[in-house]
Simulated assay, not measured.
Amino acid sequence: MKKYYLILIMLACFSAAFSQEVTKTNEVAFQAGEQITYKLKYGIFTAAEAVIKVENSPVKFNNHPALHIFADAKTAGTFNLLFKVRNKYETFIDPHTLMPYYYSEQRQEGSYKHSDKVTFDHDNGVITADKGKFPFKGNVFDFLSAYYFARNIDVSKLKTGDKLNMRYFLEDGIHTMTITFIGREQVKCGLGTFNCLKFNPTIIPGRIFRKNSKLYLWITDDKNRIPVKAHVELVVGSLVMDLTQASGLKYPLNPVKK
């Protein structure tokens, strides 16, 4: 994996709090019609925006129904001149197990372009992508399906300091991210102040992350389990992901009343 700066930040923000050892809740936390919008800010400037939508899919997989989830991520304003990003992602998942059937992406990050089409064969434990076939065991996701599965884990037994592992497929293979549960606290975002679960996903140092860079993620401590804010330190400055719009939710958002 070479140039994947924006997707790596989004992946860490959207996919935290999943582990093979945790239990999925019986009731799904989202529904068709949901739309969520995030802004990524660099200081006082809006660097990028991401919109994620959920729809019922007219396409079936092995005669099974599916939910279609798709996301658009793009840089904004001056950042289009510095490093233009136009990324599109989509995944089709089982509406009950939330496991992915099919994933695709089209990424344009500066002069770099990349596309991929990924099929998940869970019965035979094989992922088929443009770069070949990849055997796997257990649960493996693309970053969009990981985000939506993560919203449905049972966090009732999580203790401060617990470390979770998330496995996802991206571009050239299966990767693992370690996430530490920090605890519970209130955090303010564009839609108000919320009671949240706080996580610290591990960051791999590189061209945009320092060796000791920290990433913190806050997820609503309610039935929605929506990431409302994230803060990641860069080589120069930091990025903040902020929830700015949410509609079609299965459950109402409940900001803290001041």
Score class of each variant (00 low, 15 high):
P227F: 09
G125E: 05
Y148N: 07
T193L: 08
G183T: 14
H175N: 14
F45C: 01
C13V: 12
L98G: 00
L234C: 09
L249I: 09
E55L: 05
S19M: 04
L239H: 04
K198P: 09
T25R: 12
V140K: 03
M99H: 07
F83P: 00
D121T: 11
Y38N: 05
L253P: 06
Y4P: 00
R86K: 14
P227K: 06
L11T: 12
Y147D: 01
F149L: 01
A47H: 04
K229L: 14
I174F: 05
L158H: 03
T176A: 13
T128D: 02
F120H: 01
K117V: 12
A32N: 07
V235L: 11
D242L: 08
V256H: 08
H114D: 10
E171T: 14
P135C: 09
R86Q: 12
I226E: 02
T180H: 11
E233P: 04
V54N: 02
K41Q: 06
F143K: 00
M1G: 09
Y102G: 02
A32E: 13
G77C: 08
N56T: 10
V51S: 04
S19H: 03
D242P: 08
T91V: 07
Y102S: 09
V54E: 02
K188T: 15
M1K: 06
L253T: 09
V240G: 02
V187A: 14
L8N: 12
N80Y: 04
D121P: 10
E90W: 12
V228T: 06
K88V: 08
K211C: 04
L11I: 04
H231I: 10
K133E: 15
K88Q: 13
K159H: 14
L144P: 00
Y38R: 04
Q35R: 12
M177I: 15
S115Q: 14
I179S: 08
G110M: 11
F61N: 02
Q245T: 07
T25E: 09
S19Y: 03
N254R: 11
R151T: 01
V51C: 03
D72F: 07
K131Y: 06
R86W: 02
S145P: 14
K250F: 11
T23M: 03
F79P: 01
N56E: 13
A50C: 09
L191H: 10
A129G: 09
V22Y: 11
Y38M: 05
V51Q: 06
D154S: 10
V235M: 11
E233K: 13
V54W: 00
G173A: 12
R184S: 15
S238R: 01
K41V: 05
L98I: 13
I204E: 15
W218D: 07
A76D: 07
Q245S: 14
K84R: 12
V54A: 03
V22C: 05
D130Y: 07
G248A: 11
H68P: 00
L197N: 13
K163P: 11
E49V: 11
F194R: 10
D154A: 07
L6C: 06
G138Y: 14
L40W: 05
A66D: 06
Q186M: 13
C189P: 11
E109L: 02
I203Q: 04
L253S: 08
G43N: 06
T91K: 00
K223D: 15
D242H: 08
F79C: 03
E109I: 02
F120P: 01
E49P: 03
I44R: 07
L215W: 09
F61W: 04
D221N: 15
P58Q: 04
V118S: 02
V240C: 05
F83N: 00
L234Q: 08
